[in-house]
Simulated scan of single mutants.
Amino acid sequence: MRTYGQYCPVVRAIEVLGDRWTLLIVRDMLVGARRFNEIARGLPGLSRALLSRRLRQLQHAGLIVRADDGYALTRAGEDLRPLVFGLADWGARHAFGAPRPDELDPEILMWWMRGRIDTAGITERAVIQVDIADRHRLFWLVLEPDDASVCYNDPGFEIDAVLTADLPTLYRMWVGEIELLDAVRAGDIALTGARWIVRGLPAWLRYSPIAATVRATRPQP
């Protein structure tokens, strides 16, 4: 490993965390990712070979350990939480503008949304078809009392509700720039179907883990 040749704790931290993808792996583990395939699914631009290498490096650095169900953060790994979310705060304030086309991946957005749905208030299966109008793509969120999954092909269940929007609007909602109900009222998102789902989804969907940070940096009306 190449070093910077400076005796400084900032340098030592960069030597551990400065490789491409490393902090994003830590970010995803801080919000609950544990299994190899789960981490890979959330970082589709990262090859599985490089992911394996980065996980080994994080293990060697003492930030993660192998666990029965995949990987777990150590105390040193958990101590990165204020750093990672501090970067989110700085980024939201100083480096976060309109989404660029290369940042808008519908499949990863649906994967993220699936992982942030609170199923505690769901008492029966709810199938929500998500129509991303500008991409001509359909996805299906299948919500059960104890599980939420996303299907990239029609699961064959009866559709209970339909959510329609363009991809930039869905991303802006996801990161906390706009609220789902506000976007529905403004006509930027359409949500139709069974009343209990139309009313429930805004409460079930918890948005991105950094949504509150993004909201806090935006001017208040």
Rank of each mutant, 00 (worst) to 15 (best):
G193P: 08
A186G: 13
L87M: 14
I128K: 00
R206S: 12
A183E: 04
G176N: 02
A49N: 14
Y171I: 04
A216W: 08
I128R: 00
I132T: 00
F96D: 10
I39C: 01
W90T: 14
R34G: 11
P221W: 05
Q220N: 12
P82T: 07
P221F: 07
P145G: 11
A67R: 05
D28E: 15
A67V: 02
Q57K: 11
T213H: 04
T3A: 14
P99H: 05
A203L: 15
V142E: 01
V31N: 06
D19V: 07
D79P: 08
Y4D: 11
Y171W: 14
R137W: 09
R172P: 10
L143Y: 01
M29C: 03
D154M: 05
P219Y: 04
T22Q: 06
N153E: 15
Y152I: 07
R114F: 05
A212V: 08
D182C: 09
V10T: 15
L141T: 00
R81T: 11
I132L: 06
D134F: 12
M110A: 04
L43C: 10
P101W: 03
D89G: 11
I108C: 08
R116N: 09
Y152S: 12
R34N: 10
I128D: 00
G18C: 09
G187V: 06
R35Q: 11
V214T: 01
H94Q: 14
L83G: 08
A40E: 03
F96H: 11
